[in-house]
Amino acid sequence: MASISPDAAKKAPPPVIAARQVVKHYGRVHAVDGVDLDIEPGELFGLIGHNGAGKSTLFKMMLGLIPPTSGEIRIAGTAVTGRGFRAVRRRVGYLPENVVLYDNLTGLETLQFFARLKGVAYSDCPAALEHVGLTHAAKRRVREFSKGMRQRLGFAQALLGKPQILFLDEPTNGLDPEAIREFYAILRGLRAEGVTVVLTSHILSEIQERVDRLAIMATGKIRAVGTVQALREQMDLPLWIDVRIAPPDFEAVRAVLGQLPVSAIEAHDEHVSVRCARDAKMPVIEALATLDGRVLDLHVREPSLEDVFFGFSD
């Protein structure tokens, strides 16, 4: 690999997806209302929002399926509509939400149909089926597929032609927990190859530990963008510390906790849960450490993405 000069290393690579002041009006409804967003190459990016928040509309504009009322979206430096659209589309894989594929085709025929449209060789199709664990269903008709199998087939379709950017709308809908784990394992593999992945989900707990960054959307605007950790810090939501105490020392420890900068104490059996601000976390833990031996165990509960999310969208 060529050596990188210090200047170049400092400079961030150009965003693979760049949205500038994107607006979409449907009559009086402002579905998307001035969105600026940069998604970096090789990122696993989550787009979160309630139904009607505008994320599907933004998604469709990124894909060039609907034109923005104003503003511009570029993918790898090229406008998504207009002359360069075919080149852009060939670099993109898309899994729509709740897609119903063609019942009368087999798994393999479905992929072959989309392969032809994408200009991908038929010989790539069996590998795509294998990638999502559907080799056994290559010759079965989609009519007989379960919901999860249909979703996997849709994902295989999105992977055809090794796209550099994947748009996945609620990709884990209908997948069981095991399949969801496999799905994210595939995404991690793709990210390792430098593929940029943008996905939406309403199951926040599922994606919060899995995406690199996420954007929270509400009423057509991006309310916050960043890593889960950065968003938590930005919100400065209180966290909980669960403490397990040996029963004879219960009251003594409670008294110590009562003198600390905590906002709530809940006691049940031999557990005490303490709520405190983020900057009080270390002082509380240090105070507990001085109670040598009387604290049996300690567990810090960070605010969940739901807390962060509802904090921003309220």
């Binding site: 469709k60 399926l65 659209f85 119903v100 594929l101 449209l117 994408k118």
Partner: peptide, 11 residues
């Protein structure tokens, strides 16, 4: 059926 968006996302 929801497949129109998928078709239109093709080249």
């Amino acid at each position: 059926r929801g497949s129109l968006d998928l078709l239109l996302s093709m080249p």
